[in-house]
Nucleic acid binder design. Structure first.
Lengths: 260, 260
DNA sequence: CAAAAAATAATCAAAAATAATCATGAATTT
DNA sequence: AAATTCATGATTATTTTTGATTATTTTTTG
């Protein structure tokens, strides 16, 4: 069996069962413990699963006190009072896990998406970002290929922004674009700055799929300028705690919802 | 069987099965492992599949398009043991002193010019630079307005470089462009990397005057590619110790010489 | 708290897969 | 037709992966 096939099966099994012991996986995949462990180490480094003593579990919202799930149990961790930062990190982690090595992606600069850097350390992606902060982080602390659009560096926001159309973004082709949002509603994704929206739309055109990272606090909020409508979103990453009726309404616009 | 036919079959099979081992493909296509591998290498280079140990898999999505085209092999500046950091710093300091607050300048990325950051701390210039390192320095430690051309970040050289023409450099207008050089001779300023020269010339077109920073060790040296001829230089900053006859020769090309 | 149990990490040799090299023969050029 | 290129398959190093073995660490339990 191919290594990646085994790893894919592993991910599938974990997605299905949420937790599995090394022994179980060894049994299911007809492989040795050593091999399974090595696979788990790799997947963990890629932030696709979380290794725990005794086996591995699916990603749960970033770390915290998960003591409750130390042993093989099916119960999912009680999603109790997380700080906004923890929530954002969890969203960023899940977003990073959606990327496969070798893939070309666009990451829009922003509070939430900048956190993706932490989860892309061991990866090998081609990344275009207008976040000066994230670019610096990735150039310094990872082996990912990093590209920047041209433009002026805005200190406060930590982004690179150009008022012109020709800024090399147009030469980039990506499979996914990631964007964190302060406002998601029936109007779609909204922003408070027009120039920013322009730049984002420019990037959007170069990506096949749009992935939106939205903490529950941003749901049903809106700002002045519309970046895109709901049905232009391909994947929405948000919190598990989100009201189900609301998610259902969003789903009607044909977007896939990933919960953390 | 024709090579392209086989490769097409290969793509079809992979599209169908998502993964396949070399052994499987050998079986299906009645070919040798060597041939299959060679095909896979080619298809991988074309970004049509992804090779993995043991076989190959389909691309996750249409990410492709990043080419791998001619990554420039920027030569390391001939680090003459005689050129102490102090000389370079003196050159950089003088260069910084030539700028007036409010002025727009272009600073080419390089060992010498990157040092200008130290002397621009308290200044208020509009600076376009393709040096990722300098840009980060200035953004972090000064109040200067900083702009970047678009492109890929090259870790080793710490610069941003684009293979395309449209990278916002063209929208910039500057009074001076600063460039440090590893080679200045009768041929003018020479560089060892063609792509770099291209980027530099692109910037040159946007600046009124060209200021060259040249330690004495770089004088009468040359590399393969000509960035500009001597008479296209407006100001040459070099060391006071430089042979006078030599300076006189340079002056005949109409350039102003500043000594440190 | 310490011993026992369980799980993990480190090490190493065998196996598997890949890369490099070479000879052969078909296709192309001259 | 001879020369040359080129794809192919066989052969051989070289590298990577794997499972067994052995420390080492972590967790449990008395």
């Amino acid at each position: 069996m191919l290594e990646i096939q085994r790893q894919q099966r592993l991910l599938d099994i974990l997605e299905e069962k949420k937790f599995a012991t090394v022994a179980q996986l060894t049994e299911l995949l007809h492989s040795s413990e050593a091999t399974i462990r090595r696979d788990l180490v790799k997947l963990d480094k890629q932030n696709k699963i979380t290794r725990v003593h005794g086996g591995a579990k699916v990603l749960t919202s970033a770390s915290g006190a998960d003591n409750e799930a130390a042993r093989p149990t099916l119960a999912s961790p009680t999603n109790s009072a997380k700080t906004p930062q923890q929530i954002n990190r969890a969203l960023a982690q899940k977003a990073a896990a959606l990327c496969e090595d070798g893939e070309s992606v666009i990451i829009n600069g922003g509070m939430i998406t900048d956190l993706m850097g932490d989860f892309l350390r061991e990866r090998k992606l081609n990344i275009l970002t207008n976040s000066f902060a994230l670019a610096h982080d990735l150039v310094t602390n990872s082996r990912n290929q990093v590209s920047l659009p041209g433009g002026e560096v805005y200190r406060e926001q930590g982004i690179v922004l150009s008022a012109f159309d020709n800024d090399t973004t147009q030469h980039y082709s990506a499979s996914k674009m990631f964007i964190g949002t302060p406002g998601l509603s029936e109007f779609g994704v909204t922003e408070s700055d027009a120039l920013l929206v322009r730049a984002e739309q420019k990037m959007r055109r170069q990506a096949e799929k749009l992935v939106v990272l939205a903490p529950s606090t941003s749901l049903e909020k809106r700002s002045s300028f519309i970046f895109c409508s709901l049905n232009q979103i391909d994947i929405l990453i948000t919190e598990r705690s989100t009201d189900n009726a609301l998610l259902q309404r969003y789903r009607q616009h044909g977007l896939e919802i990933v919960l953390v």
